[in-house]
Structure formats: C-alpha cells, structure tokens
Computed example of a mutant assay.
Amino acid sequence: MGVDSDRTDDELLALLRRMWESRDAPPADLTERMIAAVAVDDVSREYALLTEVSEGRAAVRSEQERLTLQFSDDAISVLLHVAATESGARRVDGWCEPPLLAARLAQDAREWAAEVGDAGRFAFEDVTPGLSAVRLIVQAGGELKEFITPQFEV
C-alpha cells in the first residue's frame, strides 16, 4: 500500500483505520461488553444487591413496625434490622461481615455515626423516619473498602 504525500491527515487516518479493521477487527460485541462491564462495576460499588428479607408491617398490625434488609456484593454482607421506637423514631441495628471499621447512616444533610462493636455489630438510635443509606468502611482482603447501601425507608 503506497502513501501519497498529497493526502490529508484525515485521508491517511481513514486508510489506517480501514487497514486495521481488515487485519485486526474488534469483536462485534465489544461496545456492549464494555458498557456492561462499566455498569456492573458501578452497580457493585454504589448500590450492591438489595434483598428484602422480611417486612413485619405487612404481616403484623401493631405499634411496633419492623423491617429486616440484607445488602451484599462480592466481598461484603450487611444485615439491617429497623424497628420503630415508642417515641416514633427508629432504631437501626446492623451486622457486617468482614470486619467493620466505621458505620454512618445518612438522610439528606443529616448523619448518624455508630459505635462499632465486636463481630461487626453496630446500631443507630433515634433515627428520624425517612429515606436513608448506610455507609460502611470495612477491611476486606487486606485493604479498606467503602460500601454504600441503596436508599431504603426507615
């Protein structure tokens, strides 16, 4: 393939593109696979898998509302138990695997910090009802990892 010195940069680049496409074409599904890989990476970091284990409000009519949620990804598993208190606030008890270093519950601009106990246990008291997310810092595989749950109703 000879190259004329009269050709523009755009023409030379088009020739190179056609040559590489014919000799080393990318897989037909490359774009879809890359979009899926980026989406999965983002989902596992930000949202994880949400499984509603049980919801006492639907099964039992009482003053005491209860909700149990489980969140997990490939390295972290979190179990949350939400219960209404007599004052109308909520108590959120949690358990995390692997070892937990810090736990915070956030609603808009307000945050609650929890003391971390043995065996990955933590609790938030006097939480205002509303949409919430829990942010955890854990040590997994020798490195620190951040885990953020999807928003859920407290």
Rank of each mutant, 00 (worst) to 15 (best):
V3W: 10
S5N: 02
D6A: 00
D6E: 11
T8R: 09
D10I: 05
L12A: 08
L12V: 12
L12R: 14
R17Q: 14
M19Y: 08
M19T: 14
S22L: 10
D24H: 15
D24V: 05
A25E: 02
P26C: 03
P27G: 01
D29W: 07
L30Y: 05
T31K: 13
A36H: 07
A36G: 09
A37M: 04
V38H: 08
D41G: 15
D41L: 08
V43A: 11
V43R: 15
V43D: 14
A48Y: 02
L49Q: 13
L50A: 12
R57V: 09
Q64D: 08
Q64G: 05
E65V: 07
L67D: 00
L67Y: 03
S72N: 14
A75I: 07
A75C: 01
S77Y: 05
L80F: 10
A84K: 15
T85M: 13
S87M: 12
A89W: 11
C96L: 13
E97L: 15
E97H: 13
E97D: 15
P99M: 06
P99T: 07
L100F: 11
R104A: 09
R104S: 13
Q107L: 11
R110F: 07
E111R: 09
A113E: 06
A113D: 06
G117M: 00
A119H: 02
A119Q: 10
G130D: 09
L131C: 01
S132Y: 00
L136D: 02
I137K: 10
V138L: 15
Q139N: 14
Q139V: 12
A140S: 15
G142N: 10
E143S: 13
L144F: 11
L144P: 01
L144T: 08
E146Y: 10
F147S: 06
V154P: 02
